[in-house]
Simulated scan of single mutants.
Amino acid sequence: MIKFQNEKDVLELVKQDEWMMQVLNAAAMLNPPDWWVCAGFVRTKIWDTLHNFSERTILPDVDVVYFDKTNLDESKEKKLEQQLRHLLPDVPWSVKNEARMHLRNDLPPYTSSVDAIAKFPETATALGLTIDKTGDVMLTAPHGINDVIQLKVKPTPYFIENKGLARVYEERIRKKDWQSIWHKLDVCHIQVTG
Results as ranks from 00 to 15, higher is better:
Glu98Ile: 01
Glu55Ala: 09
Trp36Lys: 02
Asp106Gln: 15
Asn97Pro: 13
Leu13Phe: 07
Glu18Met: 08
Pro155Gln: 12
Asp177Trp: 01
Ile181Arg: 14
Arg43Thr: 01
Asn6Gly: 08
Leu24Arg: 05
Lys76Cys: 03
Lys96Gly: 04
Thr44Pro: 00
Asp9Phe: 03
Leu185Gly: 03
Ile131Asp: 12
Arg172Thr: 08
Gln179Gly: 00
Leu165Glu: 03
Asp73Thr: 05
Leu88Gly: 08
His143Gln: 08
Gly194Glu: 15
Ala118Lys: 11
Leu59Asn: 08
Gln22Phe: 01
Met138Thr: 09
Asn71Phe: 03
Tyr66Pro: 10
Val10Cys: 11
Asp68Asn: 12
Phe41Lys: 08
Gly194Leu: 14
Asp136Leu: 10
Gln150Ser: 15
Lys175Tyr: 11
Val62Ile: 08
Arg172His: 05
Cys38Gly: 11
Lys154Thr: 15
Gln22Gly: 01
His143Met: 02
Ser180Gln: 14
Trp47Ala: 04
Lys152Gln: 14
Asp63Met: 07
Leu139Asp: 03
His102Val: 07
Thr111Asp: 11
Arg167Ile: 09
Val37Lys: 09
Cys38Tyr: 05
Glu122Gly: 09
Asn146Phe: 12
Val153Trp: 09
Asp177Lys: 13
Asp106Thr: 10
Arg104Ala: 14
Thr70Asn: 11
Ser54Val: 06
Met20Val: 02
Val14Thr: 06
Arg56Ile: 00
Leu88Glu: 08
Gln5Arg: 15
Leu13Asp: 01
Asp48Ile: 02
Leu13Ala: 13
Leu127Pro: 11
Asp61Ala: 04
Asp136Ala: 14
Ile190Lys: 12
Gly144Ala: 05
His189Ile: 02
Lys79Thr: 12
Leu103Ala: 09
Arg56Asn: 01
Phe159Glu: 10
Met21Phe: 07
Lys76Tyr: 11
Lys15Ala: 12
Ser180Phe: 07
Lys184Ile: 00
Ile131Met: 06
Lys78Val: 07
Val14Pro: 08
Val114Trp: 05
Gly194Lys: 15
Asp9Ser: 04
Val95Met: 07
Leu13Glu: 10
Asp17His: 10
Thr125Glu: 05
Ile131Thr: 07
Asn52Thr: 09
Glu7Lys: 15
Gly40Leu: 06
Pro109Met: 05
Leu50Ile: 00
Phe120Leu: 11
Val64Asn: 03
Glu77Val: 04
Ser112Asn: 06
Arg43Met: 01
Thr125Gly: 13
Lys96Val: 10
Val91Thr: 13
Ile190Arg: 12
Met101Gln: 09
Ala166Thr: 06
Leu87Lys: 12
Ala166Met: 07
Asp90Glu: 15
Val153Asp: 08
Ile173Trp: 10
